[in-house]
Simulated assay, not measured.
Amino acid sequence: MTAAPLTLIRRITPLAVIFTGMMIVVGCSDGTGLPKRYPVSGNVTYNGQPVETGTITFAPVDPDSRAASGTISGGSYYLTTAIDGDGALPGEYRVSITSRDVNYDAAMSGVQGGSPKQDDVAKAFAEAKDLVPAKYSLPDTSGLTYTVESGSNRNVDFDLTD
């Protein structure tokens, strides 16, 4: 091989390595600017029965971290921090769980083809019945905690009682 092609190869090779590395990093990013999150999922029961509907929130103990939350459906949930199902950042969390029986029909009464009035929705939420004890609705009173580890966090179950 002559000197010209070797010189060209020597110049291109480092650029190709750098470009490939950058593509790997960019390809692994989800565009949120957040560190890696890990899957968290499990079940929520109240007095041994699945909580049919509700929300679960993981509030970080570290004030510089981010909360994660999820919807409880049929007793199961998975967490989201920024992108649906992306999980939670590693760390220690205080957990809150809410489940309420909201009468949406009352909020929708008199509405024809549109959205209910904000006051009617607020009233329906104010009159809603808690389906789990209210103490679980705040991370400071729930007594529930969990530490998210690097890797999969499956079967993170919470059994609520009176």
Rank of each mutant, 00 (worst) to 15 (best):
G114E: 14
N43D: 15
Y136L: 00
D119N: 12
G143W: 05
D105E: 07
R94P: 01
A59Y: 10
K123I: 13
D120P: 07
S115C: 08
I72K: 04
K117W: 06
T98C: 02
N43R: 14
L15N: 02
P133T: 00
V95N: 05
D162E: 12
Y77Q: 04
Y77C: 00
I83H: 04
P5S: 12
L160Y: 03
M22D: 08
K117I: 05
L79K: 00
V25N: 12
L34N: 08
S142Y: 10
L160T: 06
V26W: 11
Y46Q: 06
A59F: 08
I56F: 09
G113Y: 02
T7M: 11
D101N: 05
R154W: 12
D30F: 09
V25A: 15
L79T: 05
K117P: 10
S115A: 11
V25I: 15
G114Y: 10
N153S: 09
I56N: 08
S65T: 13
F125C: 10
G74I: 00
L160D: 02
V102L: 06
D159C: 08
V156L: 09
R100F: 07
D62L: 10
S137V: 03
I9M: 11
N155L: 09
E52W: 04
T57M: 06
T145R: 01
E92Y: 04
S76H: 12
S29H: 03
E127Q: 14
D64Q: 13
G42E: 05
A82T: 00
S152D: 14
T80H: 06
Y38P: 09
V95H: 03
S69C: 06
A122R: 14
E52T: 08
S69D: 14
G143I: 07
G143P: 06
D105N: 07
Y78W: 06
F158L: 00
I18P: 14
P116T: 08
T81H: 01
T13M: 15
Y38D: 10
T80I: 05
A82M: 15
T55P: 04
Q112L: 11
F19W: 14
V25G: 10
T13P: 01
V95L: 04
E52I: 06
R10F: 08
G54C: 05
Y78M: 04
S29I: 02
G48Y: 05
K36S: 13
I18D: 05
T161N: 01
T32Q: 02
K117M: 11
D159K: 04
A88H: 04
P5C: 07
L144I: 03
R154M: 07
T20V: 14
I56V: 10
P50M: 13
G91A: 07
I97V: 15
V51Y: 06
P60L: 01
T32M: 02
T161E: 12
G151T: 00
F19E: 13
A106M: 05
S152C: 11
D30I: 01
E149H: 10
T161Y: 03
M22W: 12
R94C: 03
L144D: 05
S73G: 14
A67Y: 13
M108T: 07
R154A: 14
S65H: 02
V40S: 03
F58G: 06
T161Q: 05
G110Y: 03
N43I: 04
P90C: 08
I24M: 15
D84L: 13
G85H: 01
G143T: 02
L131E: 01
S150H: 15
Y104Q: 08
